[in-house]
Design a protein around this nucleic acid. Structure first.
Lengths: 196, 196, 196, 196
DNA sequence: CATGAATGAGTTTTCATTCAT
DNA sequence: TATGAATGAAAACTCATTCAT
């Protein structure tokens, strides 16, 4: 049933199928055929729209990051104070849709891929850089610049670590406790009288 | 001329070659042939000693974890106070030999593998469990049990996150700063007067 | 809005695109999609007009040969003597438009195709036969029949060889020197006193 | 039955199978699977020994050219005069084994491949260059340098042309008549009194 | 008339694994 | 114990061709 304008529909279906399939299999070792089947089309069509498997994986990664960026923006829009904005960024990372097993596993897989795929690497840098500057911008209004950078690094590492543990099933906390852990970290690090 | 006692030598060579190869290629997509060549033998021999590729990867993972456990034990032996023991555990994680790119990348790869390989999963649980109880045991002497668990989770997540960032090249801190970040976290979380 | 009389226009565009594409890629491994795109239409339409890829390639071959035949006729029309007519045939082969890289390469590619495609083979025989009888007809007026055949074979082989070398870039002569080489051959072979 | 030292045997078998298969199918569009089957092995093994299809085709081309070079050398060794040496070169080109349909067709196919495969191109240049200098070296002892080059070009073109025609089945001459045509060309071109 | 969506067969290539020696 | 020859299954990718619209 070839209709006009199928491209965006097919691309979207393939991206979603990619994420689901990675999540379900728990590995980036997913074949184009599996993804295409899940998306209800032939593997040839998947190639037609994405050119290569790598491009498809990259598109999926991009999709996840775009969604994350959008959620972050939305959260930041309603926040009033720097502290609220930090919480909004954290909340975006642990949003219910973001923190689903398949999405978290996709992140992990992409992380691995990023090590040898230049495109994935670039994408990851964009994400990392954006998160860092978002955090630093707000932290700077609450503490001195060196500390702001230091805390931003801690937050980012904590988020990454909690993601991994979530992906591996070694995170005993639920979504809210997980978020609370990060917020607690921020609070503690911002306390004034600490002799650090 | 069949040499006696070759088995442990060959196995060790293969395990080390596995880790080096994964580190150098930056990916779990490493072939038995590549590993065997690096270990100076034929792929057939690698199978002879390990039975399958998966077993070989698992053995490499086990090796890394055993090394880590040994280092942790050694560190704990000389520590006198709970706080010192916590520091020893942290130091073991960021030991110079543990924190080499190839080892960190192997960890990351194993994490991915753990999700669908039961053997790897079991191994990972052992490591995670041991780390957690080690941390909790010492934290409990410094704070109440729920908090001890909470902080242990935070430390573990932070370590995992810092590992990932190290593997991906997104960790701007050097080894000592990295360790300091974790120790700082412990200090902050243990401060008494915090209103949490 | 179905346009009337599009067929010849489309067919012509496709034939020209076929030759250009083969010439540019330097290979018969040209896809229908590439040709169609170059001709400014969809691959489906190309099939609509030609039925199959082979038919399209064949039509292109036929086009080149028809052009050649037309040029030969035109050249023969103004020639007065047998020797002039021989020169006209030679000139038609090395006409500036005929001797363009893409056309020469198309010839070469068609030659290869001719070996297993009956249609192409038939077409090639027509061309070969026509050239041979044209040459023999005129040579017969200058020498005895066996020699005429012999010389015609030599000329045809020389032309083919020079074409190949042109296609491969191993012909160091320019178009005029190339033609002169053939004409020289004719002169030499027609010399009376030769002890052959 | 894996024995030691199979590599040269397998490589040879594959090269011969490549030439036969190209000859029989009349096209470079021959699959690795077909070649391997003809050589009595799996396609995987063919890749094991050659790395890629292109390398295999290239090896076949190299084989044909090496054989040609060897034959030429042998012929040149027994020749005493420049004229005899020219005849030896010609004879090597039309040697019974060289002029078999499958070999001639392989040449033609390789010619096509040479246009876009750098390796094939380089190989072809070596062959062309060697033939040219061999011819020129001997012709120079019989005529002036510019003429020597000119005649060498003619001979080479004639040989190529006769090969093509042989491959396409449009050469009505047998092997001896074909050779004689080239020798006759040489004789004619070397005649002194010609007013050229 | 025209599109481009869709398929599926076919091709190259890779690799874990087996096994004769 | 050790080799590397050999297989075969699986994967990515290509493309002629078909067909609903």
């Amino acid at each position: 049933m070839p209709k006009l304008g199928m491209e965006p529909i097919r691309r979207k279906a393939l991206i979603e199928a990619t994420i689901s399939e990675i999540g379900q299999r728990g590995s980036l070792d997913v074949t184009v055929g599996q993804i295409a089947r899940r998306a209800g089309m032939s593997s040839g069509l998947a190639h037609h729209y994405f050119g290569s498997k790598d491009q498809m994986l990259l598109a999926a990664m991009r999709h996840i990051m775009t969604e994350f960026a959008r959620r972050t923006c939305r959260g930041l829009a309603t926040a009033r104070t720097p502290r609220e904005r930090l919480d909004a960024i954290i909340a975006a990372s642990f949003d219910a849709r973001e923190f689903r097993p398949e999405v978290v596993l996709s992140w992990l897989s992409f992380y691995v891929q990023a090590h040898h795929n230049p495109g994935a690497r670039r994408l990851l840098r964009v994400y990392t850089g954006r998160l860092h500057s978002n955090l630093v911008f707000n932290l700077r209004q609450l503490t001195d610049p060196p500390r702001a950078h230091r805390i931003a690094n801690g937050i980012a590492a904590l988020i990454d670590g909690l993601y991994i543990r979530q992906a591996l099933g070694t995170n005993p906390l639920d979504r809210f406790q997980t978020m609370e852990l990060v917020r607690d970290y921020v609070d503690r690090m911002l306390e004034k009288e600490s002799a650090h």
